[in-house]
Amino acid sequence: MRMTDRPSNEEGALAPWFAAGREAAPLPSGEFMARMEALALESQPAPRAAPAAPARQSRGPGRLLARLRAMGGWPALAGLTAACAMGLWIGAAAPEAAVDWVATATQEQGLSGLDPASGFDYAMLGL
């Protein structure tokens, strides 16, 4: 409250009367206060429900999903599936072509053509 907005600045000769009036502040009875508290409690809205906890997932899918995430998620699974399908297709549809290709490579380059580690590497390792 601003200094100029104090009621006492305006009271003049009535100041002692108002002071007596403020001093005699009417107080409610204890019974009334107890009744008001009961009414407040009765009217109070129920506590707001806490956000629902996520439903616990069953053990199996949870583990599988965790492993899938560890592998790289759904894109990795798609790549793996495509590679498996390609392998099956090669094995089932063109086994002879694959055998021919291996034979040709062996004849032209020897085993080093198929072996990722060359003879030089084995020599360096003392094998």
């Binding site: 508290e37 407040a40 109070q44 809205p45 506590p47 707001r48």
Partner: peptide, 13 residues
């Protein structure tokens, strides 16, 4: 009080 907090009704009253 509106959120249902215990004790708010008593304090407000």
């Amino acid at each position: 009080y509106a959120a249902g907090a215990p004790g708010a009704a008593r304090a407000l009253t």
